[in-house]
Design a protein around this nucleic acid. Structure first.
Lengths: 351, 351
DNA sequence: TTGAAAGCGCTAACAA
DNA sequence: TTGTTAGCGCTTTCAA
């Protein structure tokens, strides 16, 4: 252990890395018998170049496989063309949360469609300081944050730092940052109403309301019950753990105490699937004895048996809104928070 | 429609983006009463600086929230500190393939641990040309390619272009690129032997051998059969489609023609789960009537009922090897292909 | 339509 | 231990 000065800078990463490629603008210029200015113009599509000159330049560039160096161009232009996507990992959240990665996939599509690069990073909650780094070191022009839970206060602090950002998640009172999210309360309502319409009357809610999005889903659950003249009963609500290893035994134990249920709304498809298994172990079958609805419409929900009725969030649309919003911020324009609709996807588990 | 000259350059993306942050090295230098060289030294941890000077500089930097501009520093140093991760999307492959995204998650962890940035991009097969762009424009120092299937020949061509790269996938004869992959033949063998040891004798193989990794798994399947004195029978092998929408009816139709089976090895967990459903529809239950083994050990395999016995590839290790190998290439060192072990994870579907 | 020259923000000889 | 100077590879005035 060596003692560290408080002001010690962080060491540079992973030592020596590759030198830049060799052929550059000056080479092309020399070979084409023009100045680098002309090459620059030709390659960037300026119309201050003779078409024949451009043709010659482009051919030369193609032959030598020359590409404009993005860093140099960016430096000179003072513009950055890269968007940071940051995954904030909750305590206990799986290292590869399917929903998050799904979102990343959609963002990758959306960004590449617009010719933007995506810088992806995952931070544990205790390292979330690095989030701002991406922008402040100029590696990204702005940041899309996935994983709002438990970071609400931090994000509010961050709002004071003036850099472009947008957050995916729940619309929380007092949020000073821009949020794009789906209507979790509506989702919870749709899921529960569906179960009620199918005749369920003792409907469990599985989810931990410490998580803002989950709390809203629970709110929708209660609203639906209310509309059907039912009072939410506390013993029917289980704040399941996020991790499968923990929540399985937890659900099994709870199931013994809860008496009978005829329906269940789980805050995630993973929990819904786990519940199906726990019920089966207890001799109950889905959907015959208990009807189950999940959330997120994860890929697997369609494959499994029984397939899982689920609440779908429009991820492609979400990705578009997130990028739109961030781009607005990067251009100094106003942002606004957006609430996206959710829809119910009916499958076997609730029939 | 406007006619385009063949040499017309591509337009620059998404127009005007944010200007770089304002406070810079010269500002700190002025305020600290030293030269920029000293600031640079102080902030990069050089020991050619007086500790007190450094202290002063660091405090000033912290107060003004100054960060060294990564692009400028990189340009000057001629080093790039970013790794490209490219997902090559197969025809018909889900836009958010869980296995790929899982791999991305592990790579994100591994790269961030080493202080490297990750530039993520997804390309359709017909746009895979852009892969080399990442390096040739200097946005990444090298590329990790996920999604070798159908791109083998292209990757071989690419091997001629001298830029750092490494591929995740199957070790194919005649590959001129470095491959890190898991032992697919072993995986197929382990899965099938397990079924044989459990007493299965009519074991189906579900997977399309056009895909190199799948072909190797099939090879392991046949080897295990052979060891047990069984000949692989063609009707037991179904080249299932990659997409769930297609393969489900395909499996159902095939099931009617195949006569009885008592075991099945599917090339992916998704297909294994689909098979469980198809069997259930046909009045057969897993594992009682048919034992099933999948591949990839996807997150959901543990959740579902019955949980899916699966072949696990060591993804964390894979990520480490991929990054090691790419870094070697970026530093001009030799690379070597690596074959990682696979293991069987026993769950309910084969008990 | 082209070129010369300056400089984006930083680092690294070299000299002091 | 610090400063001076040159320049990474490119774009963009400005002048021709």
């Amino acid at each position: 252990m060596t003692a560290e000065k408080d002001t010690k800078p962080t060491p540079s990463p992973s030592s020596a890395l590759r030198k830049r490629a060799r052929v550059q603008m000056a080479d092309i210029a020399r070979m084409a018998g023009v100045s680098t200015a002309t090459i620059s113009r030709a390659m960037s599509g300026s119309d201050l170049v003779n078409e024949q000159t451009r043709h010659r330049v482009m051919e030369l560039a193609a032959k030598l496989n020359y590409r404009v160096d993005a860093a140099a161009a960016g430096l000179r232009k003072g513009a950055v063309n890269t968007v940071g996507v940051v995954l904030l990992l909750d305590q206990g959240q799986a290292a590869t949360d399917p929903f998050m990665m799904n979102m990343v996939g959609h963002l990758a599509d959306e960004l590449s469609q617009r010719g933007l690069d995506m810088l992806l990073a995952r931070f544990d909650l205790n390292k979330r300081e690095q989030l701002a780094d991406m922008v402040e070191t100029g590696r990204a022009g702005g940041v899309i944050v996935i994983g709002q839970a438990e970071s609400h206060d931090y994000l509010n602090e961050l709002a004071l730092r003036q850099f472009p950002k947008v957050v995916w998640g729940a619309h929380m009172p007092g949020a000073r940052y821009t949020v794009i999210g789906s209507d979790n309360a509506l989702g919870g309502y749709l899921a529960t109403r569906h179960l009620l319409q199918r005749g369920c009357r003792r409907i469990a809610f599985l989810g931990n309301e410490d998580h803002p999005e989950v709390a809203l889903r629970a709110q929708g659950y209660r609203q639906a019950l209310h509309e059907f003249g039912l009072a939410p009963s506390p013993e029917l609500q289980l704040p399941v753990a996020f991790t499968a290893g923990e929540n399985r035994p937890q659900m099994a134990a709870w199931l013994k105490t809860v008496g009978s249920i005829d329906g269940a709304f789980a805050f995630s498809d993973a929990v819904a699937m786990g519940l199906v298994a726990v019920l089966a172990d207890a001799g109950m079958s889905v959907p015959k004895d208990v009807k189950v609805v999940g959330y997120d419409d994860v890929v697997a929900s369609e494959f499994v048996h029984p397939s899982i009725t689920s609440v779908r969030q429009p991820l492609a649309l979400a990705a578009r809104e997130l990028v739109d919003s961030l781009l607005a911020a990067m251009q100094g324009k106003a942002q606004r928070s957006v609430l996206l609709p959710t829809t119910l996807v009916e499958r076997e588990s609730s029939q």
